[in-house]
Design a binder for these strands. Structure first.
Lengths: 273, 273
DNA sequence: TCGAAAACGATCATAATCGATCATATTGCA
DNA sequence: TGCAATATGATCGATTATGATCGTTTTCGA
């Protein structure tokens, strides 16, 4: 990835939350720590961000207020490494010019950073996603009409929605509360209703779920496994769950999660002195 | 491929994406690196794009325009005192629980501040207004569906819009390019189209125009004077223009402008409702 | 306070990109 | 056709960016 692209991604990451770590940016840009450090130092001199130990932070915590004090902001920080890895792998499925739907959620929100260097047509019912894409990328952003629900930060409408009805997308990306043999599960009937409307407008359904979601259950079934085209999850997925997807004819993408904490060696080290 | 063709391709690539690499452009144009470099250098001199290491980027990358540079934010600072005074007076027309429509514009944008302490139901086609109301107030915010146009920062849709069709508001607030005996004038047919849709859903039309707009003319007529219920303007309005409104049966509210230079007391007009 | 882990800065080898130059191809014109 | 002007592509040394290494500094917890 080139310098200007990296800078774009870094600024995008830093402005969607108070702080972005070097490791995180390494993962996002697929470049080395040294390069990220140099980039941060450069952007710091340009006063585009503030360089702090461990990474970088936004100059003005203004946008942060957008995500503060809401359930959304609580969820957004748990399993963040998994979510980022999953979102990155999902975004890699897209090519410039594609038309996609992104359903609101904390995992799908992480797609905005890898999408910073893209140019897609994106329909989303998530206000934060729309906000970020509009302010930090060149993607075309479309919104369905309706009321903005603060709790979930999505746009909902009880009415039929002409924008949705006239929209066609090759892929729809969404998260979920849980996934099991019966299909994709959600909690809130309102959400189900909104997601169903979007589902009808896309060919391939791509589900973004961290591996814990396979043991999570929820009250309402959104759709059967067969409706899913691809599942993107992290490397914590158990074999039996992978098998369940295989049996249902679902394509599985496992996103490797960068683990900085534990000294877990990936076995490849042979000549160590 | 010839020079002019290549230039077209390069510009198109750069404008549809934040960044285009030399390798990418080589592939696109089926020419050599040297040629692409020469082209980029040339276009750089012509100020059609910015030359950066590894390729080229658009003159105003997305993240820059998002923060400054966009027409919206340029306009927003001119006649700011008048706009604020007018917006304040307009907002004072509302009571908690009201249902209103706010059409996008730099004058109407100023209503967000006086509305911070209110609890209204607000339908707006302006993304910045929605953003601000959502993040800084407790008002219920509704959006029509459609594509977000960066230039004007509003949401537009070519389709019928069920959210709008099912919405009823007592008042609609809007700005305008100009106002004269023939009615309210706008420049852009797209804007006209969007405003007409909203107009149909409100009883009273409240027009927010600074006094200069009475001598401004524009190409397209949105609606006749008779459609206007109330005009809110600043104290620079001339008598003949006030008379024109009176003749058309339009209510006129003159907002006193606080002039900090003269140290003149704004004598806070207490007219509640 | 000490020690381990993480983050950092400096340095170096490698790779990517660039600029200059020259040879070749194309075009326009006599 | 022949010639000049221009555009293009290839080459190569120079410049710059990148990633890995290593010693130092900072942070954090025992």
């Amino acid at each position: 990835m080139h310098e200007t692209e990296r800078h774009r991604v870094i600024l995008s990451a830093v402005q969607s939350k108070p702080f972005a770590s070097v490791a995180e940016l390494v993962e996002l840009t697929e470049s080395s720590e040294a390069t990220i450090r140099r980039d941060i130092a450069q952007l710091h001199l340009q006063k585009k961000l503030r360089r702090v130990r461990g990474g970088a932070e936004a100059l003005t915590p203004a946008h942060v207020t957008a995500l503060n004090g809401r359930p959304f902001s609580v969820n957004i920080s748990i399993n963040i490494a998994q979510k980022r890895a999953i979102a990155k792998a999902a975004a890699d499925l897209c090519e410039d010019g594609d038309t996609i739907i992104i359903n609101g959620g904390t995992t799908t929100f992480q797609m905005v950073h890898p999408l910073a260097t893209r140019r897609l047509q994106i329909l989303t019912n998530s206000f934060p996603i729309a906000e970020h894409l509009l302010n930090h990328t060149k993607n075309t952003v479309m919104l369905p009409g309706g009321t903005i629900y603060r709790e979930q930060n999505i746009v909902l409408s009880p009415f039929e929605n002409d924008v949705i009805r006239n929209f066609y997308a090759r892929r729809m990306f969404m998260g979920a509360q849980g996934i099991g043999p019966l299909g994709v599960m959600e909690q809130d009937p309102l959400i189900i209703h909104a997601e169903e409307k979007l589902l009808g407008q896309a060919d391939e359904l791509v589900l973004l779920v961290d591996s814990e979601k396979f043991s999570r259950r929820s009250a309402l079934i959104l759709c059967p496994l067969a409706r899913i085209h691809t599942v993107v999850t992290d490397d914590g997925i158990e074999d039996r769950h992978a098998q369940m997807l295989a049996d249902a004819g679902v394509r599985l993408i496992v996103a490797p999660v960068a683990r900085s904490a534990k000294g877990e060696e990936p076995e490849a080290e042979a000549a160590e002195g």
